[in-house]
Design a binder for these strands. Structure first.
Length: 586
RNA sequence: GCGUCCGUAGCUCAACCGGAUAGAGCACUCGCCUUCUAAGCGAGCGGUUGCAGGUUCGAGUCCUGCCGGACGCGCCA
């Protein structure tokens, strides 16, 4: 089943071809002037430019091919050569009926699915997630869902920060507090199954150790040795490290669950570590590694670069692996285990240069084909001052606290509005939670990912305007309507498009596939968010203009109800692609 | 210094391969609840798209320069 835009593009392209014009110019888009037409084609202008001809004359030729086409009730030329297309009502009605029947709400399935890894979230052992993780998680989750929904086989990987110097710091800190701990004994074990540290311990010890390492060179050296011993396989350290990972991961998963973010893989930096020695020798054998200032690097600069890109540091002067090393090894690891066609790195825009270095090195090493690695960068979440978001005290706000703030606000707003009074306490909490998550996610995904945005909880949490709560409200209103319809025994039947508001709603429903295709191509969830809002607003207009359960004559009711059912289904599908779940009541 | 991104309504943001009258939301003004959730709907107000050139029939979009801002630039990730 194809959406109208694609179908009409086929029709108009054929007309272009008949006129001896390039068929690809027959591309049809939704009209910029809904007052004039439903769809338009600007191809005559482009054709005229290429052929140095009169655009209106070309448009007239094309239109002559289209005027009798049953898809259209009107085909007109406007301005310098725009072709305006107004749909035949029967065509729109037929499409609306298809949409209402379709399990996928009008979304198509990719003809050629790919294997895709989405690397996002980036949580770290022992470090609580903060607002910086929010965007990576929200955007990555949405992109993962979008790719999967379109038909790709997708792995969402948390890319857990579980290796390196930070682990040495933690081991050292635990050892200083618990010198008698069996984990500190350099033996073959066995070691306790019980973790010697709680999450609270980790959150206390890590910042302490990290700051001490900055000022105390001896401490830093001991931590480095501990890191090296861990990586060399000291049994007690390994066992202790496993506890760090497990304790952290459990806490992080709780956090992610609260945001409806689910990973398929929790591969960490440690998983790539075993590959590093062979990778280094292989890179060396290929002649890619160069000794420089005591380190071993890969030069990735190219002629024609506007400026010299620094080399990728593979082995530091101290002989250790750097984060670029781990990233490169991870590419190799994924190729062996998954063999993806595409890997998307949903990471802060500020790391663009780093990924450019790694990707170039990976292509040079033939670990990944050109173009199969993409950095999906995003801007920062800023405070009211336009600078990256900080708490009032100037510290970093923990994600957990942020969510709690949002939930508090949601509860307050619900109470203010006198909503949810009839809900049980548990249902009320669930609703408040969903409102909070919807507000945070929609505020984030409503903007193009590349731009930074200003965090303003009051604005996000408003139930009016372009917000998550507004979208939930519209969905809930439809659910309420459908419940009432069921009680009254009204059943949905075939849609008939008649009223202007119905026509507009049918067109809005049809636009779903176009929005998904564009969001997919640009890796831009804001396009899905935009569609959700447009759909909600168009439905609301329909709701105001067209009575449903009380429509007269009663024969209108089944069609109107079918519109409502189809809208709800598509709305929930759309919101789910943004990672937003709707409550049943509010 | 070099590089990347950005500058659109009072505020927060959109704008499909260069196309018509640059769109939304908030705020502000007016209208609409004895019909399905008014957390809604309708109407209005609001713009020299940072500045100056250039390419084009046509530029927020492409090119050049300038002004202003954010970020990045080898052993942290």
């Amino acid at each position: 089943m194809s959406d109208l835009k694609r179908r009409l593009t086929g029709v108009v392209s054929a007309a272009f071809a008949t006129c001896g014009l390039p068929p690809e110019l027959g591309r049809v888009t939704v009209s910029d002037r809904p007052d004039l037409a439903d769809f338009q084609c600007n191809g005559a202008l482009a054709a005229a430019k290429a052929a140095r001809a009169n655009p209106r004359a070309l448009a007239e030729q094309v239109v002559a091919q289209l005027v009798d086409d049953p898809h259209f009730s009107r085909v007109e030329i406007a301005g310098p050569g725009f072709i305006n297309l107004t749909l035949n009502l029967d065509v729109l009605t037929e499409r609306a009926r298809q949409l209402a029947q379709d399990e996928r709400c009008g979304a198509e399935v990719l003809a050629q699915p790919r294997r895709v890894v989405v690397d996002y979230g980036g949580p770290n052992v022992a470090k609580p997630m903060h607002v910086g993780h929010l965007r990576a998680s929200i955007i990555g989750e949405s992109i993962k869902r979008l790719f999967r929904f379109r038909g790709d086989q997708v792995w969402g990987d948390a890319h857990f920060g579980d290796w390196g110097f930070q682990m040495g710091l933690l081991i050292l800190a635990v050892g200083d507090e618990q010198p008698q701990s069996p984990f500190m004994q350099d033996t073959d074990g066995p070691f306790p199954d019980e973790s010697p540290v709680s999450l609270a311990d980790l959150e206390r010890l890590y910042p302490m150790a990290a700051s001490r390492a900055k000022t105390d060179p001896d401490y830093r050296d001991r931590a480095r040795r501990a890191t090296a011993e861990l990586q060399n396989g000291r049994k007690g350290y390994r066992a202790l490290w496993k506890h760090f990972v497990d304790v952290s991961r459990m806490a992080l998963e709780r956090e992610f669950n609260a945001l409806d973010i689910r990973f398929d893989l929790w591969n960490g930096e440690s998983d790539a570590d075993p590959l590093i020695p062979e990778m280094v020798s292989e890179l060396d054998a290929r002649g890619l590694l160069v000794a420089d200032q005591g380190a071993r690097i890969i030069r990735v600069a190219r002629d024609g670069d506007k400026r010299e890109l620094p080399p990728l540091l593979v082995v530091s002067s101290e002989g250790s692996a750097m984060y670029g090393t781990t990233d490169l090894a991870t590419i190799l690891d994924r190729r062996r285990k998954i063999d993806p066609d595409l890997v998307l790195y949903v990471v802060d825009q500020r790391q663009a240069d780093h990924f450019e270095q790694v990707f170039r090195a990976a292509v040079m090493a033939e670990y990944a084909p050109q173009g199969s690695l993409e950095h999906i960068g995003f801007g920062t979440m800023n405070g009211a001052d336009g600078k990256p978001f900080k708490t009032r005290e100037g510290g970093v706000l923990k994600l957990h606290d942020l969510i709690e703030m949002a939930r508090d606000k949601a509860r307050a707003r619900l109470h203010e509005a006198g909503l949810g009074a009839e809900l049980s306490p548990a249902e009320f909490e669930e609703t408040a939670h969903r409102v909070a998550v919807a507000a945070l996610k929609f505020a984030d995904l409503g903007n193009f990912r590349g731009t930074s945005y200003v965090f303003d909880l009051d604005r996000f949490m408003s139930f009016e305007g372009k917000t998550g709560p507004y979208l939930l409200y519209q969905s809930v209103r439809i659910k309420s309507l459908l419940r009432k319809g069921a009680e009254q025994g009204v059943t949905a039947a075939e849609i008939t498009v008649a009223e202007p508001a119905e026509r507009e709603l049918a067109l809005a429903l049809d636009a779903f596939e176009t929005a998904l295709a564009e969001a997919y191509a640009k890796r831009a969830p804001n396009i899905i968010a935009e569609h959700a809002y447009r759909l909600a607003q168009t439905f609301s207009k329909f709701y105001a203009a067209c009575p449903i359960l009380v429509a007269e004559p009663v024969s209108l009711r089944p069609s109107r109800l079918a519109f409502a059912t189809a809208t709800l289904a598509q709305m929930e599908t759309t919101l789910r692609l943004l990672g937003i779940e709707t409550p049943d009541r509010m």
